[in-house]
Amino acid sequence: MSNSVLVTGANGTIGSHLLRVLRSTPWDVRALIRSAENERLVTSLGAQAYYGDFMDQASLGEAMTGVDTLVLITSANPDAAVQASNALRAVKDCGVRKVVRISAIKAAPDGPTANTVLHGETEQEIIRSGLDYVILRPNLFMQNMFLAAQTISEQDSFFFGTGDAQMGMVDTRDVAECAAQCVLSNQFDGNIYEVTGPQSLSYFDVAQALSAELNRAISYVPVSPQDVYEGIVGAGWDEWIAGISRDYAQAYRSGWGDFTTDTVEQMCGHPPRGIDRFIREVLCAQSALSV
Score class of each variant (00 low, 15 high):
residue 31 A to M: 04
residue 226 Q to G: 02
residue 202 S to I: 14
residue 241 I to C: 07
residue 180 A to Y: 07
residue 269 G to W: 10
residue 77 N to R: 00
residue 279 I to D: 09
residue 28 D to Y: 13
residue 187 Q to V: 15
residue 147 L to F: 12
residue 14 I to H: 04
residue 132 D to L: 07
residue 110 D to F: 00
residue 168 G to N: 03
residue 219 S to A: 09
residue 181 Q to R: 02
residue 117 V to T: 04
residue 265 E to P: 06
residue 104 A to W: 13
residue 246 R to Q: 03
residue 254 S to I: 12
residue 104 A to L: 15
residue 44 S to Y: 05
residue 15 G to Q: 06
residue 227 D to I: 11
residue 214 L to V: 01
residue 224 S to M: 14
residue 256 W to A: 12
residue 132 D to F: 10
residue 266 Q to M: 15
residue 150 Q to D: 07
residue 189 D to Y: 03
residue 65 T to H: 04
residue 81 A to F: 04
residue 42 V to C: 06
residue 188 F to G: 05
residue 3 N to K: 13
residue 8 T to Y: 01
residue 236 G to R: 09
residue 276 D to C: 11
residue 125 E to F: 12
residue 285 A to K: 03
residue 117 V to Y: 00
residue 168 G to K: 03
residue 271 P to K: 05
residue 91 V to E: 06
residue 185 S to K: 14
residue 254 S to G: 03
residue 204 F to I: 08
residue 287 S to A: 14
residue 138 P to V: 06
residue 158 F to Y: 09
residue 43 T to G: 01
residue 69 T to I: 11
residue 159 F to W: 13
residue 190 G to M: 02
residue 228 V to K: 00
residue 7 V to S: 07
residue 173 R to G: 00
residue 172 T to L: 00
residue 48 Q to S: 14
residue 80 A to Y: 01
residue 156 D to T: 15
residue 237 W to A: 15
residue 111 G to F: 03
residue 253 R to S: 00
residue 151 T to R: 07
residue 256 W to R: 12
residue 208 Q to W: 00
residue 11 N to C: 14
residue 146 F to A: 02
residue 119 H to A: 02
residue 68 D to W: 11
residue 61 G to P: 10
residue 144 N to E: 02
residue 273 R to S: 04
residue 264 V to P: 10
residue 147 L to C: 11
residue 61 G to M: 14
residue 57 Q to A: 08
residue 173 R to S: 00
residue 281 E to P: 10
residue 125 E to R: 15
residue 44 S to G: 09
residue 93 D to Q: 15
residue 56 D to P: 08
residue 2 S to Q: 10
residue 167 M to A: 08
residue 261 T to G: 04
residue 96 V to M: 04
residue 13 T to A: 07
residue 263 T to L: 06
residue 238 D to K: 15
residue 187 Q to W: 04
residue 285 A to D: 05
residue 209 A to Q: 02
residue 265 E to Q: 09
residue 96 V to I: 04
residue 29 V to I: 13
residue 158 F to G: 00
residue 262 D to W: 02
residue 263 T to Q: 06
residue 61 G to I: 12
residue 273 R to A: 03
residue 33 I to D: 07
residue 154 E to P: 05
residue 39 E to P: 11
residue 141 F to E: 06
residue 201 L to H: 01
residue 175 V to I: 14
residue 290 S to F: 11
residue 163 G to Y: 05
residue 153 S to I: 07
residue 39 E to D: 13
residue 262 D to G: 10
residue 244 I to V: 06
residue 152 I to L: 06
residue 245 S to F: 08
residue 202 S to W: 14
residue 62 E to N: 12
residue 275 I to F: 09
residue 22 L to M: 10
residue 210 L to M: 09
residue 38 N to I: 09
residue 169 M to C: 06
